[in-house]
Design a protein around this nucleic acid. Sequence first.
DNA 1: ATGGTAGCCTCGCTA
Length: 261
Amino acid sequence: MKIATYNVNSVKARLEGVLTWFREAQPDVACLQEIKCETPAFPRAAFEDLGYNCAVLGQKTYNGVALLSKHPMEDIQDGLPGDDADVQARYVEATVTPKGARAVRVGALYLPNGNPPNTEKFAYKLAWMERLYARAKVLLATEEAFALCGDYNVIPTAEDVWDEKAMAEDALARPESRRAFRKLLHLGLTDAFRNCDPRGHQYTFWDYQAGAYQKGHGFRIDHILLSPQAADRLTGAGIDAHVRAWEKPSDHVPVWCTLKP
DNA sequence: ATGGTAGCCTCGCTA
């Protein structure tokens, strides 16, 4: 079972390339972020034609997440619990049950960027991470396999960025952000890519600005965190970095992992 | 040297 995450930076502007990647990568489940459209405007038919079921939580102009699955999805939950006043579309969760394989609960998340630090945006990011931590604890108590996949907007360590010093004051690399990410790991979650690939400096994002991709100025901020029951089944993980060189690319590339049935 | 680019949908905000 292949689970992937991909921040597409507008599903409508990116549809051709995203569909090309789906045909090539053939994920069983894919979590999309920054679809940047309202739920009814999501190009559902294009994905259904490829055999995917869609669970979409959209929003006009900003944010927006979707879960696409080749297998049936049950118990779809829109939004991250913990703040009824939060209107930003950043989380959708569902249980995926492939034929002949054990179920996996999958959460698609788009964690707030949080820049600039020392503003309400950074406070919102940290509060959102507290809510994600609480959600992970609830899911762990079920003792079922789950995967929390998405754009975490956190560079976990100095090994995950082209220049640690250049990013020292950025919300993606601030100690508070890293501490909150480590708190998730310390619950017993596994960073799927890090677990399968010991190399440092493997990136999932390159800014459009200042020729960052050409210069190799990237970060690793898109992650798949697995519960112990899912991590027991982990057989591989990777980053589809070649997608960044395609025409009209997203600034992020897909990250994936594979689980035994 | 506080730049640079992309998307949305108005010309500013978010990333």
